[in-house]
Design a protein around this nucleic acid. Structure first.
Length: 189
DNA sequence: GTTCTAGAAC
DNA sequence: GTTCTAGAAC
């Protein structure tokens, strides 16, 4: 392999990342765990099933065990990474990257890779669907209903702090604000 | 998904 | 003049 010209289109990038030793965290018979290449928080992992599942819409009840396994793996990885920080486990309603992947992301959102409104809203609005919600929907309805158009509108929403709901007009001001939440939270001693 | 950058916003 | 956002990328 000379340079990064492996799989043509950028949306196929996750498949390459799964084999990248720099990003790979662990794997078992069902899933691969990698670090997000551009982490949007102090801890940001992706859990991908080895089985090729394109997206949420293609999930069937037969995938429920796998989804529960992914969720459990997420809790395990988060616990190993950091026991103080809060984590969320979930899926983007309209992911940019191909191949189903669950985000495991700490809620500090303290990262230089977190730069714009789309980044922010994709993790703090209903564009981010909790894994438990996906599982519940699949159990109840036999499929996952997805309103992609409504989800995409979430990305354009005004910026709001995910902790206190305060509104902000720019990303730099929001980022300066959330640092304050992180400090007060860990100021135990 | 990111990078780059024009021009809006300040 | 600088900061910041937002749209194109073949």
């Amino acid at each position: 392999m000379a340079s990064g010209k492996t799989s043509g289109h950028w949306s196929m990038g996750l498949l390459a990342s799964m084999d990248d030793p720099e990003l790979k965290v662990t794997a078992d018979e069902k899933v691969v765990v990698i670090k997000d290449k551009y982490p949007k928080a102090k801890f940001h992992f992706l859990i991908l099933p080895k089985e090729k599942i394109p997206n949420l819409n293609s999930l069937k009840p037969s995938h429920l065990d796998l989804l529960r396994h992914i969720h459990k793996k997420g809790e395990e990885i988060a616990g190993k990474a950091n026991k103080e920080l809060k984590f969320r486990f979930g899926y983007h309603a309209v992911p940019s990257m191909s191949h189903l992947h669950m985000h495991v992301i700490s809620q500090d959102f303290d990262s230089p890779c977190l730069k714009n409104k789309k980044h922010w809203n994709s993790f703090t609005t209903s564009y981010f669907v909790d894994s438990s919600e996906i599982i519940r929907q699949l159990e109840k309805k036999g499929r996952v209903e997805q309103d992609g158009q409504r989800a995409n509108e979430m990305l354009k929403q005004d910026l709001r702090c995910h902790v206190c709901n305060k509104a902000f007009t720019t990303m730099p001001s929001l980022k300066a604000h959330i640092v304050f939440h992180n400090v007060t939270k860990s100021a135990g001693s």
